[in-house]
Amino acid sequence: MIRTDRWFAGIAVALAGTTVGALPVFAQASLPIAAAGDQIVIKREACRVVEPHKFRVPLATEALQTVTLVAPFDGTIKQVSAKTNAKVQAQSDVVRLETAHQKLLLARAQAALKLAAVELRQAGKEDASVEMAQARVDLAQVDVDLAKLALDQAMVRMPFAGEVQRILVSEGQFVRAGDPLAVVADSRMIKVEIPVERSAAENGKPYAFKIEQAEVEGKIDAVLPLPSKFDSLRELFDSIASVQVVIDNAGGKFKVGQTVYVPLIPRQPVVEVPNSAVGNSPEGHRKVQVVRQLIVRDIPVTLLGQVGSTRVFVSGPFADGDEVIYETSHQLGDAFQLKPSGATTASVTPSTNGQPASSPTAKPTTTPAPTTPKQVGF
């Protein structure tokens, strides 16, 4: 990761005659509210903004049971009994194949069975003759059973009570054995495979996420190895796993294929910041303050993975050119404007190991700031 730190040693800031809301910038300490004429020291560093598409993986709801019905043998589609989105009971017909060939095979097998039975009655009293005739009867009976099975398989049935999601054939179409005919599902239980931090991956544990705009809570049904589609998230988290989460959908509130959102997949730009840059908003959410074109902005963020013990990945509406404020001597509100006052700026020393270096020889001077509302000079 490329990281740029800036330490503006002793930046002198003069506050104009406006009141700044008492927003807690850092969760770790309570800072004084800036007042007119205060000298304010700010530490900040440049952001390296990573676009979220790098980590984006589309997630969608699935039925707990989904089956693709296939053709049992070569033949022609005689009838499509079910319609897409129809609720179908178990063992109900979905698709029927032409059965003329199977009926003829059954009739032939039944005739062979009758013939074998006649031969058994006419067999002599010798044990060998009777045994051979009985074997022919048994073989003919098996052929009859196989013919009945083939005839029964021409009716492709619903394996469970559920919904027909897709019909893949039409009447009169010729199909080969194994060709897909329809997709059916039981959506009374919905599942989705999502990435989670390994510490939260535990069977039976509740897990909250969003299905489109709805907040839902499911239960972790299985812990799985992380699939390759989630590999990009390894950059943001030290330890990550994949889980199958199941939710009860007996009421039919959710549909198969709805979009799923989870906290570990960022939807906004990602930035690595010092822990000290993360604070709390009055609403109780996490935020980071940045300097954007000489204006202090509050950026609401979602915490992602920790980077060592001093830094963390966050996701929020960052922009190129933002500079993260990770330490300040006073509280600064959102939309607080900075304005150069002509003061001598301290020299900037490159940082080492992610820590800002100070310039002990810097002796900034200040000049009176103009009394423009919501402006400070530095």
Rank of each mutant, 00 (worst) to 15 (best):
D179F: 10
L181Y: 05
L181N: 02
V183T: 13
D186E: 12
S187C: 11
R188F: 06
R188H: 11
M189S: 13
I190Q: 09
V192Y: 02
E193D: 04
I194V: 01
I194R: 02
I194G: 02
V196W: 09
E197F: 07
E197L: 07
S199Q: 05
A200S: 15
N203C: 00
N203S: 01
N203M: 10
G204V: 03
G204P: 04
K205R: 15
K205V: 09
P206V: 08
Y207F: 14
Y207M: 04
A208D: 07
A208K: 13
F209S: 03
K210N: 15
K210A: 13
K210G: 10
I211N: 13
E212T: 12
Q213W: 07
Q213V: 14
Q213N: 11
A214H: 11
A214W: 11
E215F: 09
E215P: 07
V216K: 07
E217S: 11
G218C: 04
G218D: 04
G218Q: 07
K219A: 08
K219V: 15
I220H: 00
I220T: 02
D221K: 15
A222R: 14
V223W: 10
L224C: 08
L224T: 08
K229D: 13
D231S: 10
S232R: 05
L233K: 03
L233T: 01
R234F: 01
D238Q: 11
S239H: 09
V243T: 03
V246M: 05
V246Q: 05
I247D: 13
I247R: 06
D248K: 08
N249M: 09
N249T: 14
A250P: 12
A250W: 09
G251L: 14
G252V: 04
G252E: 04
K253H: 06
K253W: 04
K253N: 10
K255A: 05
V256K: 12
V256I: 08
V256D: 06
V256L: 05
G257N: 07
G257D: 03
Q258H: 12
Q258P: 15
Q258R: 10
T259S: 14
V260E: 01
Y261V: 14
V262A: 01
V262Q: 00
P263A: 09
P263W: 03
P263V: 01
L264G: 02
P266G: 08
R267Q: 15
Q268K: 11
P269L: 02
V270H: 04
V270N: 01
E272W: 07
